[in-house]
């Protein structure tokens, strides 16, 4: 099949199989920042934003999201212009192996867009679709708290 998608703000026409999952289509087309850890909607490494909402891209048929807005971690910020959240993860020591990190950044981005001042419980809820085996989550939660503070500070200064 062939379909059009808006990926990180750019319109893209991609080829895919009718039963293909979005994670595979994205990875086959160079969006390797979307990781594939389990293909069963459990680990969250493949998380993307679909029309601004976080979803497991392994749980989506590519064909079903044509013409939709897809945002990967690179659409949030890249090496040359990282997002506050990405810097917060780096500074808090929340990145160990980093395989799960793009998914966590996506989940955090969605959370802070909706709720710029989350409680610890709300943070934990927001990232309950992401597994991390390295950090024990402690520094990830720290990073999200710090990111929220930084974003608020930035907004206040505007």
């Amino acid at each position: 099949m062939e379909g059009t998608f808006i990926i990180n703000g750019k319109e893209k026409t991609l080829n895919f199989n009718a039963d293909e999952r979005l994670v595979i289509t994205l990875r086959n087309n160079g969006y390797t920042e979307v990781k594939n850890g389990c293909s069963e909607g459990e680990c969250g490494a493949c998380m993307i934003l679909l029309d601004e909402k976080p979803v497991h891209s392994c749980q989506i048929f590519t064909a079903s999201v044509q013409n939709k807005n897809i945002q990967t971690v690179k659409g949030i910020g890249d090496l040359y212009l990282p997002h506050i959240i990405q810097n917060a993860f780096v500074e808090a020591g929340a990145v160990q192996c980093g395989f799960c990190t793009p998914g966590f950044i996506v989940a955090t981005y969605a959370l802070l867009n909706e709720n710029p001042n989350p409680t610890e419980e709300e943070i934990k809820q927001a990232i309950n679709g992401n597994l991390c085996r390295c950090t024990g989550y402690v520094k990830i939660i720290d990073a999200i708290k710090n990111a929220a503070k930084s974003i608020q500070k930035e907004r206040a200064s505007l």
């Binding site: 909607g41 969250g44 998380m47 679909l50 909402k53 976080p54 979803v55 497991h56 749980q59 989506i60 989940a107 809820q125 927001a126 990232i127 309950n128 679709g129």
Partner: peptide
């Protein structure tokens, strides 16, 4: 139920 991203789907 499930998790945040799955509840979106």
């Amino acid at each position: 139920s499930a998790d945040t991203p799955l509840r979106n789907r």
